[in-house]
Every structure is written in structure tokens, then in C-alpha cells.
């Protein structure tokens, strides 16, 4: 029983991290419909740059975080304006090939410059773990969960309650109509891609302070983020949270009771089932309309 509670706590924490890691992809793939295979590398770069800023340059975590996220925003903007923009409207294959190419480049450039060793970002919070009854949790994990919640909520509010958020949704649903209303769609595309890149990098740096950053981690992060986005329903932030928690919990219990070696299969089996039976995501009201 105690073990089950610990699995539950671990699953919720991992699930919150999955939701956070997938947030940028919810925006870029879910809403903007760019199949972005470089998502995991943006996440990875957030961690590696965070390590450079803190462990190498000696900045404090908060300053480093702001700088890294800003730099990644610029990178995202440039990638959209100079790469994605050229293939926009030419079908998904071009975008997929482009972002796969970009991901290979980013991963190997990082491997070349920083090497394959794990890079640990010093955690902003230290101290004894908390004991909640039989459950053990570290403060930095709880803080990271809190930051995840804030970022998810913030992204949701931006998309649904602000002028630029409405312009984003309009642009992705019908770019021509958006142009005719005076929206400069090319800026909206670039801003959304930049925002998604910043969210991916935030997640990468936060999680690099709990686990560690590694040049080769991008592929797995991308795949799991796609799992979360598809589980939750394309472009839905509440869905992404639910998708993250479901994935985190299933993996925690599968790893705890069945076998740890096969944990990574769980998500993919779920995605296959979802795509077969509820192609618009677990929580869509109209699963038929795919």
C-alpha cells in the first residue's frame, strides 16, 4: 500500500514533468500544426545552455533561466522565419523532413561542442526531502511541479484570453481569413514557434536541475511529447496536463509492478490505441470528427 502511494506520487511528479515537456509541442504541433521533430532538441538545448550559464559561467539559476529562455526564443523565431516559412503550405512531409534534419544537426552540434556526458544544472532549491506520511518528495521536484503548473496555466491564458492568443488561433484555423482581418500572419507564426521553443527550453532547463541535460536525449523527449499531445487532444492545454499525468502514472505503476525495462513502451501502446479508437484525443467531446 505504501509502495502504491509512492508510485502514485512519483507518477504525478513525472506526469507534471511530461506535461511541461510537451507544452511547447502542444503549441507548435497541436495548435500550429507544424510536426516539429526538433522539439526534443529545443528541450535539450534549454538544459545544456542552462548548464553553461550556471555551472560554467557561474550565473544564478533565475538569471540564467531568463537568459536561456530569451536566447531560445530568438532561435525559435529565426528557425521559423528562415526555415519553416519556406515550406509552409507545402504539406507535412517537407516540415517533417526539415525538422528531422534540424534535430540531427542540433543534437550532433551539441555532442561535438559539449560532449556526451550528462550536464547537471545546480538545483535552485536544496535541503532535506519532505516526508508526507509514507511518501518521500524532494523540494526541488515540488518546486518544478509548481513551475510546471504556472507555465501550463500561463500558456493557456495567453492562448485563450489575450488578443495575440486569439490572433494565433485565428491564424492556425484559417490564415487567409486572419490576413483579411488585418493580422500579420507571418509574425504570428514566428511568435508562436518562438513561444513553443521557449516553453520547450524552460522545461529542459528545469528538468536538467533535477535530472541532467544530455545531448542525445532529444529523440526520446520528442516522442514522449508527441504521446502526451496526442493523448490529450491536439492543441488542448488541459488535455496536455491530463495526457502527461496519464503517461506519468501508467509508467510509474508499470515500472513498479510489471517491469522497469519496458516502461517506455507504455506510452506508445496507448497512442496506438487512442489513434485507433479516439483519434481526436481522449477528452474531445466529438471523437467522431477526426
Amino acid at each position: 500500500m505504501n509502495l502504491a502511494l509512492q508510485f502514485l506520487a512519483n507518477g504525478l511528479v513525472t506526469g507534471a514533468f511530461y506535461a511541461l515537456s510537451a507544452l511547447g509541442l502542444t503549441l507548435i504541433f497541436g495548435l500550429m500544426r507544424v510536426v516539429n521533430f526538433a522539439h526534443g532538441e529545443f528541450f535539450m538545448l534549454g538544459g545544456v545552455l542552462g548548464w553553461v550559464a550556471t555551472a560554467v559561467l557561474g550565473l544564478d539559476f533565475a538569471t540564467a533561466f531568463v537568459l536561456v529562455v530569451a536566447a531560445m526564443g530568438v532561435l525559435g523565431w529565426l528557425v521559423d522565419r528562415f526555415m519553416i516559412e519556406r515550406v509552409r503550405g507545402h504539406g507535412e512531409e517537407s516540415t517533417i523532413l526539415l525538422t528531422i534534419g534540424l534535430s540531427i544537426f542540433l543534437a550532433n552540434a551539441t555532442l561535438y561542442l559539449a560532449g556526451p556526458a550528462p550536464m547537471k544544472v545546480p538545483a535552485p532549491l536544496t535541503g532535506k526531502p519532505l516526508f508526507l506520511g509514507p511518501v518521500v518528495l524532494t523540494k526541488s521536484r515540488l518546486a518544478a511541479v509548481a513551475v510546471s503548473v504556472v507555465l501550463v496555466l500561463g500558456a493557456y491564458l495567453v492562448i485563450h484570453r489575450t488578443r495575440i492568443g486569439r490572433a494565433m488561433r485565428a491564424t492556425f484555423q484559417d490564415a487567409m481569413a486572419a490576413k483579411l482581418s488585418g493580422i500579420r500572419t507571418e509574425r504570428i507564426f514566428a511568435a508562436t514557434f518562438a513561444l513553443g521553443t521557449m516553453l520547450a527550453a524552460s522545461a529542459g532547463m528545469l528538468l536538467a536541475s533535477i535530472y541532467s541535460a544530455q545531448a542525445s536525449v532529444g529523440g526520446l523527449v520528442s516522442l514522449k511529447a508527441f504521446v502526451v499531445v496526442i493523448l490529450g487532444g491536439m492543441g488542448s492545454f488541459p488535455g496536455a496536463i491530463a495526457g502527461g499525468l496519464i503517461l506519468g502514472l501508467s509508467e510509474a505503476f508499470w515500472g513498479g509492478y510489471v517491469s522497469t525495462g519496458t516502461v517506455d513502451i507504455v506510452g506508445f501502446v496507448m497512442v496506438i490505441l487512442i489513434l485507433l479508437f479516439r483519434p481526436r484525443g481522449l477528452f474531445s467531446l466529438n471523437a467522431q470528427r477526426a
Binding site: A167, R169, Q173, D174, A177, L180, S181, G182
Partner: peptide, 26 residues
């Protein structure tokens, strides 16, 4: 100048009010 395009092109996943208000985006 305002151009109301062929085949309407409303934003299907946005509410009527959101559609309307976005017409006044500028």
C-alpha cells in the same frame, strides 16, 4: 477596404463573438 471571401472562411473552432471581434483586430 474589407474583403469578405468566397466560402465564408469563418474560424470554425472559435465562437461567433470571437469571430466577430477579431474582425476589428486593427
Amino acid at each position: 477596404l474589407s474583403h469578405c471571401p468566397e466560402e465564408r472562411h469563418v474560424w470554425p473552432e472559435m465562437t461567433v463573438e470571437e469571430n466577430l471581434r477579431l474582425g476589428g483586430y486593427l
